[in-house]
Design a protein around this nucleic acid. Sequence first.
DNA 1: ACCTACTGGTTCAAATCTGAACAAACAATG
DNA 2: CATTGTTTGTTCAGATTTGAACCAGTAGGT
Lengths: 151, 151
Amino acid sequence: MTETRWLDATEMAAWRAFVSTTHLLERRIEEQLKSAAGLTHPQYEVLVWLAEAPGRQMRMSELARVVVASKSALTYQITQLEKAGLVQRTTCPSDERGVLAVITEAGLECLRRVAPGHVDVVRAYLIDQLTREELESMTTAMRKTEQALRR
Amino acid sequence: MTETRWLDATEMAAWRAFVSTTHLLERRIEEQLKSAAGLTHPQYEVLVWLAEAPGRQMRMSELARVVVASKSALTYQITQLEKAGLVQRTTCPSDERGVLAVITEAGLECLRRVAPGHVDVVRAYLIDQLTREELESMTTAMRKTEQALRR
DNA sequence: ACCTACTGGTTCAAATCTGAACAAACAATG
DNA sequence: CATTGTTTGTTCAGATTTGAACCAGTAGGT
């Protein structure tokens, strides 16, 4: 029961800026993806990871970890994507319990169509607003935090 | 219809790190607040802003903007907080349509009880992981992005 | 005063997320 | 092989979010 180390002015400013900016950006991205393709951000991320995965497929649990979704949220989203014909489920050959999500040709096509508009937003509001130094500094900062959280 | 400027390796790394880290951190914070006080992160933010506001009160629309919530989401959350006795609604004297949210004594008490654990998490995973330079660089970066988004 | 346009908040249905409970398949150990 | 403990994915109910529709009040011009 040690004394709380409160945030000083600089730290508080950093935290406030971080929170509001991440929420604003997330909102903007959702809006863009929704209006451009009827996709949510989680759905888009799933497609991206699957498109880059070897064999264009990934295990549910692995996918849930990389896109930072709960198991049930991923189950739901994959079901949605399957209904839309962008993804298919297969049972994993090596592990009878496992399920492989595979991106379909339509899924890849959808990604090609949507990606430019998405990248434009990421660039316009984040990437192009920052200097190269700020960009690199942010990357190391985010990675440190991510490592601390992945335990 | 100009050519898409794709992200180079550095930019892509920055964006990926940013996305996964923000999601992970958000998740961790939700978990902490939920288990420690049954609060969601949006609810906690509302209480913080109200506690610091002049007169410990704020207009709904203003509150929605600072905590980055939609109007309906805020309406819902204020209703929840009101049920819990942490906030009260008052009609705005200057504008008959307006609604003022006021934090109650119980709300302030709740905040005092919860804040230390919340700050611990923010510190442990973000603030204390970063050097002072990284912290300040992140703040300017986030502010640039926020300004670009607030239009 | 009267219209018109806009703002502030709520309501509603639909979509999504959460966490706990569950069943099936794997793994480790005796 | 039997047993026990873990992992995997789904299901379910409840909580939250979204966006559109809506009503009431305000502001600006005529």
